[in-house]
Design a protein around this nucleic acid. Sequence first.
DNA 1: TGCTATTCTGACGTTTACGTAAGAATCAGC
DNA 2: GCTGATTCTTACGTAAACGTCAGAATAGCA
Lengths: 147, 147
Amino acid sequence: MSATAQRPLRIGEVADLTGTTPRTIRYYEEIGLLPGTTDRAQGKHRCYTPADVDRINEIVRLRDLLGLSLDQVSKLLEAEVARAELRREYAQTEDPVARRGILEQALGHIGTQLELVRGRRAELHQLEGELVQKQKAIGERLVEMAP
Amino acid sequence: MSATAQRPLRIGEVADLTGTTPRTIRYYEEIGLLPGTTDRAQGKHRCYTPADVDRINEIVRLRDLLGLSLDQVSKLLEAEVARAELRREYAQTEDPVARRGILEQALGHIGTQLELVRGRRAELHQLEGELVQKQKAIGERLVEMAP
DNA sequence: TGCTATTCTGACGTTTACGTAAGAATCAGC
DNA sequence: GCTGATTCTTACGTAAACGTCAGAATAGCA
């Protein structure tokens, strides 16, 4: 496999990759949005993986696109943390009933997020319609004015 | 014409109608987002029209749906002062060229708003797509599990 | 091993968008 | 004209989401 640079990332690089700042990343860790790198001696540099970058990008998107507070994002992603937990369980159980239940729960969490996104999109659609109406109205007045 | 209650509205009513508070409305006036009711003696109650309600609703929607700062909203709506100025000019000029210019400017502003709304909607569309992908993946695993 | 860039940990500062409280004034109804 | 509800102005308070600064420590490199 061609390695995509497995070198651990430092906080500054991650900040650049996610359009944030080191301070922001530390803050997210501070409020529990990001996992405090559990095995890290006091004073040592934090290091991150591409997966962490994905996660931060996800946070930023929920924050910016849906206008959620970090608290709300946290709750929404708690479902995701729960999913990670569930995946661990999933790998460890053989019981097909349990596995099915876990997957179905995951489906539910994604469903919640989809509802939010679709709701927001519908509102924007409505707003767009009204703007187009205004546009038309003005356009007509312009036409009436000077044919 | 059946009158739709031409009685001027007070700040508390407007707040209820727009899902805001009197404080918020005064604040918007304070920062120039709403017109300081020009003809109002110090200490007298503010009074509003249904048009004002519409305007506040517009502000709230831009704020909430697009996540714009009040400063950005202000710019997007052309600081109320400038708008009032334009309306005055529009009403006072007979020059069709000037009137056309003003209307065209209005069209431009609406165009800007439309771009924002559509852009945001596209981003949400993208996010929705990714969520649906995840959903499908899980769904397939469920099907594979127990047909 | 030494140097320089980056990061670390507090801790206080800042901005936005209001909330809240106080005391006086206004307004609608009786 | 009185009264109770609402509003007025002024001013300080607040929560969220970081910014910024200081002084020490670390990491990568020559």
